[in-house]
Design a binder for these strands. Sequence first.
DNA 1: TCAATTGTTCGGAAATATGGAACTATTGAA
DNA 2: TTCAATAGTTCCATATTTCCGAACAATTGA
Lengths: 113, 113
Amino acid sequence: MVQFVHPATKDITLAGVLSALADPIRLQIVRGLLQESGCLSCTAASPCPTIAKSTLSNHFRVLREAGLIQTSKKGVEHQNTVRAADIEARFPGLLMAILACSLSDDASPVAPA
Amino acid sequence: MVQFVHPATKDITLAGVLSALADPIRLQIVRGLLQESGCLSCTAASPCPTIAKSTLSNHFRVLREAGLIQTSKKGVEHQNTVRAADIEARFPGLLMAILACSLSDDASPVAPA
DNA sequence: TCAATTGTTCGGAAATATGGAACTATTGAA
DNA sequence: TTCAATAGTTCCATATTTCCGAACAATTGA
């Protein structure tokens, strides 16, 4: 049984959050998680079906270690949720500011509308 | 004479801004520029004297290409200013949100007080 | 003209990202 | 119980990026 490392709220760093969200795929994953009632498996949260499983797994690990998401095992799947309250407590306004900006960034969506 | 590439405001991307600011040294540079009346040479803006010149030059290039700073040549030195208005126009609230968070991030300052 | 200063460019070493293949863990069916 | 299917992880090789030192270019002042 693999158990996951989640940093405590106080151990979340700005550099970690920014570099995690600097990747368009990871930003898209976070956006997707927040939209879809906050809980998705890894493959369901993937913004692009052509990404290799190993790459996707790595993206989720980065998001986990940055403190952006929490992952728990539920059967075969993993349930991922955004640690919105923790991020807000650590860096008030940051996550929402970034997500709001992502709406006006044409380069951000992996699959543009 | 080396001339610099500065992206137009509309070409500034969220991923570029976030990945540029995800590096603590670059974030510190931007903070320093904003504090010191907004204009500094590259070495003067360096948060840490042990960083190699070539590395510093690279950091400034990244900031420039992300659209975060503008560089103009003034004699031997380069004058760097933060494109605060452009960033604000492109991504309202983003830069200030990140800078505000950097105050409460102990890991952010290169030379902690 | 020459030395000093500022920053860029180049080359190699170290770190990181990506994808394919093999592996583990869990579920459901026979 | 045994077997196949599914979801992620880990390992490995390749490719890209980062960092530094050294050499270089441009400007200034003596």
